[in-house]
């Protein structure tokens, strides 16, 4: 009975891992070398960055909102770390990282506070923040900056530990923390409660606005962290480096089976979603398609995924009621 319940409860998430596994197997049969150890390592490191960027997006979507401001918080964080790496080294740079993550959190909180206390729709607020940051980052850096990727970030993104990439290990640690936060803490339960039914959550004594605002804060912080990771991977920061992550973070969440209407889903699903995207991106690049065709195919695949996830979720919901 318990086992059955477990399967039923987690069927959506588990099916996502099956999809990744099947997709991966199919492609590795068609394309030898895809399943080689070194390529898997690259894939997982890439998935890690998408997955980290999607941490906050998962929380925000569970509340029933959306965060469109990830790209430029991401980009701003990478640019800041890149610029400060000249003057701060060693332990001092640790402080810079803490500072950047704090700023990311605060920027996210601004989103959250405006969404919850002023009642601005999350999509408009975060789109606005994204544009403001785009202008601000472009203006402050005047296009290009000189710097270097600090060693600690290089190790984080490209290093390996007993043959496993550090980025992937780091992601696993973060995933465990997020899962514990969602499942075992009052905050996590409050998040699901308000995503399911705001009014009921409010009358159950949950401080709805605070819980929701913090979700946006976490999203800002995770976006900044992902930006630092990509800086470590590419070795330099440039304008527009965060742009793909607006679509990818939402897609990872959707592919992971989290309902866009909020109240359900798990970060475990998002992890599978991020892996799916990494595999897809790698395939589309390997097929030697033009940028445009990649974008079209990628968009269509994700469109289908979102649609299927929504239909599945609405079926689950109606069977629950």
């Amino acid at each position: 009975m318990d086992k059955k319940l477990f399967w039923k409860k987690n069927s959506t998430t588990i099916s996502r891992y099956f999809i990744v596994a099947i997709l991966f197997t199919l492609i590795s049969i068609l394309k030898p070398g895809f399943a080689s150890g070194s390529h898997i390592k690259v894939l997982l490191a890439e998935a890690a960055i998408i997955g980290v960027a999607a941490i906050g997006q998962t929380l925000v979507i569970i509340t029933g909102g959306i965060d469109m401001s990830i790209p430029w918080i991401f980009n701003g964080a990478a640019m800041a770390a890149f610029a400060f790496s000249n003057t701060f080294t060693g332990a001092d740079f640790g402080l810079v990282i803490i500072g950047i993550l704090t700023v990311g959190f605060l920027l996210g909180m601004i989103n959250g506070i405006c969404v919850t206390y002023l009642g601005i729709p999350s999509i408009v607020m975060t789109l606005g923040t994204n544009t403001i940051l785009q202008g601000a980052v472009t203006g402050l850096t005047s296009g290009s900056i000189v710097g270097q990727a600090p060693n600690i970030l290089k190790v984080l993104s490209t290093g390996s530990f007993f043959g496993i990439s550090v980025a992937f290990l780091f992601w696993i640690v973060l995933a465990v923390i997020v899962l514990l936060l969602l499942r075992k803490t009052g905050y996590g339960r409050a998040l699901y409660a308000l995503g399911n039914n705001r009014t009921v959550a409010k009358f159950s004594g949950i401080h709805v606005k605070r819980v929701e605002a913090i979700a946006y804060g976490i999203s800002g912080m995770s976006a900044a962290l992902a930006g630092l990771m990509l800086l470590g991977k590419t070795g330099s920061a440039y304008l527009g480096m965060g742009n793909p992550f607006q679509f990818q973070s939402i897609a990872a969440v959707a592919l992971g089976g989290v309902a866009m209407s909020g109240g359900s889903g798990s970060y475990l699903g998002t992890v599978a979603g991020a892996m799916t995207i990494a595999v897809l991106l790698s395939v589309l690049t390997a097929l030697n398609l033009s940028q445009a065709m990649q974008q079209v195919l990628y968009g269509i695949i994700l469109f289908a995924a979102v649609l299927i996830a929504t239909i599945q979720n609405s079926k689950n919901r109606s069977s629950k009621l």
Partner: peptide, 20 residues
């Protein structure tokens, strides 16, 4: 770039004021 910043500020401000 100020014009870009302004676009965002203006959107957020108008929607915020109307919503309040």
């Amino acid at each position: 770039f100020w014009s870009t910043v302004f676009q965002g500020v203006f959107l957020v401000m108008t929607v915020g004021v109307c919503s309040v």
